[in-house]
């Protein structure tokens, strides 16, 4: 792989100003997207604590033994906020070519609109997806547990479950070419914790819940 990069895009200006701006972005991002999503996830999953790292930021949420009722009401007012800006779909269809040459066309709007409370393991890179051999619907997995890999030019990158949960339906087939961030396997939360009003959960691949 190339060891150095000779030029970045032209026209970029003062690094300081950019950094300040990125920091502001990051703070806004935390407040607008991450925290509500985390609170919803915390409420829905019944996890005790979630830690998230994104760029230079780290956020940790801890919930001291709350009842189901109180956690739901805590998540409720934030629902709309958490969902804001996430429903906008791409205008164009994305074609996923499979390794065998066939193509599957999916509209991004289909892919972007997620069911409430839906959580999925996402692809860490662009490459060819291979689920773990023993993966089966109904199997219990822990947060961070490897459930497959994506082969990137011969190097395997782990696909991990973002939460403690139960393996649900497959969203990509074995040997399928996948893009970065693509949902691969649905992870259902254990029965007792899935509430109808759990709120949308944005499980970005960089956001990994930790119990």
């Amino acid at each position: 792989m190339p060891a150095r990069v000779k030029s970045s895009t032209q026209g970029s200006e003062s690094e300081d100003a950019l950094q300040v701006q990125r920091d502001h972005e990051a703070i806004a991002g935390l407040a607008d997207d991450l925290l509500p999503a985390l609170i919803a996830k915390l409420a829905a999953s019944g996890l005790g604590e979630i830690e998230v790292r994104q760029g230079g930021w780290k956020a940790r949420l801890r919930m001291p033994a709350a009842t189901d009722e109180s956690s739901k009401s805590a998540a409720k007012p934030l629902e709309g906020h958490a969902g804001r800006g996430q429903v906008t779909g791409r205008g164009a269809a994305v074609v996923h070519a499979r390794a065998d040459g066939s193509e599957r066309r999916s509209t991004p709007i289909e892919r972007a609109v997620e069911e409430p409370g839906r959580i999925a393991a996402k692809s860490p890179a662009v490459g060819v997806y291979q689920p773990r051999k023993d993966l089966a619907v109904g199997m219990r997995v822990r947060s961070g547990e490897r459930i497959g890999h994506v082969n990137v030019l011969g190097v395997n990158q782990d696909v991990v479950s973002p939460v403690d949960g139960v393996i649900g339906s497959s969203l990509a087939e074995s040997g399928e070419a996948v893009e970065y961030g693509q949902e691969l396997v649905r992870i259902d939360l254990p029965e007792r914790q899935t509430g109808g009003d759990a709120g949308r959960v944005d499980n970005d691949p960089s956001v990994a819940g930790k119990a």
């Binding site: 792989m1 791409r90 994305v94 890179a125 662009v126 030019l153 996948v178 970065y180």
Partner: peptide, 25 residues
């Protein structure tokens, strides 16, 4: 169109493996 990585160009537009893998798949 194919998503090759996160916003940080180091892991997307500047990532040779991501770009080449995207071309191949």
């Amino acid at each position: 169109a194919i998503c090759i990585g996160p916003a940080d160009a180091k892991h997307s537009y500047l990532s040779a493996p991501a770009v080449i893998s995207a071309a191949i798949v």
